[in-house]
Write a protein that binds this DNA or RNA. Sequence first.
DNA 1: TCCCCGAAATCGCCGAACTG
DNA 2: CAGTTCGGCGATTTCGGGGA
Length: 473
Amino acid sequence: MGIEYKNGTYYYRFMIRGKMLRGTCTNCRTRRQAEAYEQRIKKEHVEEKVQIDKVKYLEKRLVEVQGGSIIPLSRAIDMALEKPPLSGSTPKVLAQHRHFFHDFVAYMSDTYQITTLQQVRKKHAEAYMEYVRTNGRYLHTVSYNRGGKTITYSSRVKHLSSMTQNKIHMTCKLVFSKLQEDGGLTKNPFDFTRMQLDKENREIFDSEEIQAILSGSDDFVVPIMRIALYTGLRLGDVVSLKWENVDFKNGFITKKMEKTDKTVVVPVLDYDYMQSLYAARQSDEYVLPQQMKMYTANQSGISYRVKKYLKSLGIQTTRQTAHGRNQSIKDVHSCRHTFATICAERGIPLSVVQNALGHSSQIVTEIYTAHLKKKTLAEEFKKFKLSDQKMTRHGLPNIFKMCVCLLKLKDLPRRNVQKVAYIISENLSKEDMETVFKVCGISYTPYSEHQNIPDANTSEEDFDDFMLEMPYE
DNA sequence: TCCCCGAAATCGCCGAACTG
DNA sequence: CAGTTCGGCGATTTCGGGGA
């Protein structure tokens, strides 16, 4: 017992697990109350210790039973990446996994003093993902080697796209699942749902933008954009296009794509331009030798040039995000989207477009042509026009309300429906009428021969009289 | 503007879930 | 139960941006 009394307040103090714990006995007026208070606090700590010991014991048992061993978090990523088929991944993929998991390890160590794989619970994994969701990565230091010199800086990105958040989640989950046997793990702490993906942000070029892009004077960028717009090829395929891929005689370009190893065949739609390029060629190998040179040496140099060129034309290439990196909305890849959209717009079947783009699944192509769907939808809906004549006087402000009215009246005697139908028929065009009745599933017979039909100038009273006196069939 | 890293998007494969 | 759709997952390319 270590109760102390000072200036009207009781304080407790005791040692547990080699750690001194002290604090105020709040709301205690007597020594007895203070002692009871201290007991409560002590008990909580002991119970916690028992809990921890229990978990540790179970972990140990589990590891023994499952035939695994305690794995330090620091070694986990290397062990996981040695497992096939991961071990056969490209260095870049492996590096990214390392990069992500290292971040998680640092967070676990700093926040929970957790150092082994077995200690990680679902709540820890969730806390980390929550941190990533709100703050981005835990470690912001970026360092790399350039010409024997180490360059270090702190990344300013404070927010990650849902795509990247999910990537981090998947890497962590992967490590735990790969080491399930080695570590005698029964559950994967990262086994919970991931973020819903953001919407597609890339936009297509409209006709004015295309015009501006193609008539520009940049000899480096324009050929890339031009070929991309006319073929729908990716940047990598445009710059690596060789003259042997272009068959002028039959008018086809045949290209094995860099990304998917699939071969696509597209017609030479821009024949004269390609001919002129051929006539002025500086290389017998590549169509765009200069661009290819930069692509191999300094890939993002091309992005840089394209962005600069588009900006000079007044085209906005990126969209600002809250705290994260800007998102690209218009770039070389937009040409691929534009190509697909124009194809669909001109009525070229989806299967043909799919072949030209080299997609194995039509769903992917549909993502591209979704631009058109939105556009068509807007265009189609322009046709939908409310009748020019105002109907507010009769309490029927628009076509939608009319539909509702008619649906409500559907079960009434036929003559009531006819009566309403008559009024509407005098105020709406025939086509609109037919649409409304079709939607409502009501057959319609206009009273066109009736005299004294009310119109926009009819007074409220006259209209009511008319309704009352209107003869039924 | 080059060179690099990390972030983000794209894409194919495959098995589970769903449908008729 | 065969055919189809859907989602998880891994692989690859492309883009933004810091620093020199």
